[in-house]
Design a protein around this nucleic acid. Structure first.
Lengths: 228, 228
DNA sequence: CGGACCGTTGACTCTTGTCAAAGCCAGTGG
DNA sequence: CCACTGGCTTTGACAAGAGTCAACGGTCCG
């Protein structure tokens, strides 16, 4: 449990650390900035993969759709994360902002050209993708094995760990996405998400302000509930 | 659906292609061979990550355990696949053979030393991990969104696509793992796996010999059932 | 022969999904 | 200023898919 948290924090989202440690050395300083409205797509599944993006502000949901409309969110990308990395010529998932966001764009040809000559950059890409893989597998464990309560609790713990980098107000987690986004991430319906959050409130483990700001009242209990 | 299949086939397991195209150029020709018995661990979560392995024969299940014994299989590694890649000092999942297997071992320090000087090798690692990421996310969609029937059908379709590289007996899929392994991969119980397979038999979509050899009688229907 | 392991099947339970209604909030326009 | 609208969340009643518990059967192996 604790080791999982450490993994999430330290490496699961390594790009966060990378950004702060060496923000000038990933090539994105040459990229252009693009603003994205809430619910606007950065790209869609099937689009040619012309650019890689680094999130500077906001949250981007990466998702895959089934033909009947079911949607699985694969990851949320937060500031410092990269999206659009990979070996394929086309994107294989949608990237859609859950709230207003800013991203930096760098052409894939530029990036790949640089990477083919610069082993350090190639290794950085390797590590970034490795970190995404850790996150994807961690989510898979939640979705495949955990109950609704455990998934929601683990989600909140994870979000809290990610966003408490600087000495934030220690026990507040902002939810910059809708219930439907959380549901589609965790493989639950919005009703189950809502009921579970309500239950956590009645258990006095969390408090919710305005539906979007979660105050963690008992973080030990929340981590217990998140399962091992 | 079809595009997903293509993704799985062509890139989801790119290492298969890589192995056949350039088997002498991944550094593993210098590695030692290790035999692994069925159910024996190649490594466990928490072990120091001293080697990277390339599967030469058999199937290795990669899994994570929760403290109460629930298990999520994260991927099956088939011949040509690499396991143990990543940026962490310790392994974060178990690797256990589902049947007798052979793996090639290469020390991580050797590999990383080579990769830091050889951008081509670093890029190859990057691509291998990217392919694993594609597979992990595809599984996540199944587990998060699909019904038991859709998951089993998609699993069979995927397995069929992976193993039909050479012109095999076109419509036979061998299941080199137990029902519990399939269940732990798909987030189902062994009973549900068994019932669903039985249902596919009574629907005349597949036939099962000896519990381990699946004959696909109606592959169009099977792909329909696998969902989009 | 006996036991261990695995797979299948049945009966029942329960968590989660489905369907429906109502509340809340923000933005818009009269 | 307020009614109206649309998007989102919450809650309730009910249904259903998958899990649990249990028994049985088959196969392999000592």
């Amino acid at each position: 449990m604790f080791s999982e948290l450490v993994a999430q924090d330290v490496q699961g989202k390594l790009p966060i650390a990378a950004m702060f440690c060496e923000p000038q050395h990933d090539g994105f300083e040459r990229g252009t900035i693009r603003r994205v409205e809430a619910k606007e797509h950065v790209f869609r599944e099937g689009d040619p993969r012309t650019h890689v993006f680094r999130i500077d502000e906001g949250v981007i949901a990466l998702s895959k759709l089934l033909s009947d409309g079911r949607r699985q969110i694969i990851d949320f990308a937060y500031p410092g994360d990269y999206i659009g990395l990979g070996v394929l010529t086309d994107h294989i998932f949608d990237a859609q902002a859950t709230c207003a966001a800013k991203v930096r764009c760098l052409s894939t040809t530029t990036l790949e050209h640089d990477a083919s000559r610069d082993a350090g950059l190639a290794l950085k890409l390797y590590k970034a993708v490795s970190a995404e893989l850790v996150a994807a597998r961690s989510l898979l464990v939640s979705v495949g094995q955990k109950t609704a309560m455990e998934r929601i609790a683990a989600f909140l713990v994870d979000l809290h760990a990610r966003n408490t980098q600087a000495a934030d107000d220690a026990d507040i987690v902002k939810l910059p996405m809708r219930r439907s986004d959380i549901g589609d991430l965790l493989g639950l319906t919005i009703e189950t998400v809502s009921r579970t959050i309500t239950k956590l409130r009645t258990m006095r483990v969390i408090d919710v302000i305005n539906g979007t700001e979660v105050h963690i009242l008992n973080s030990d209990r929340l981590e217990e509930l998140a399962g091992a």
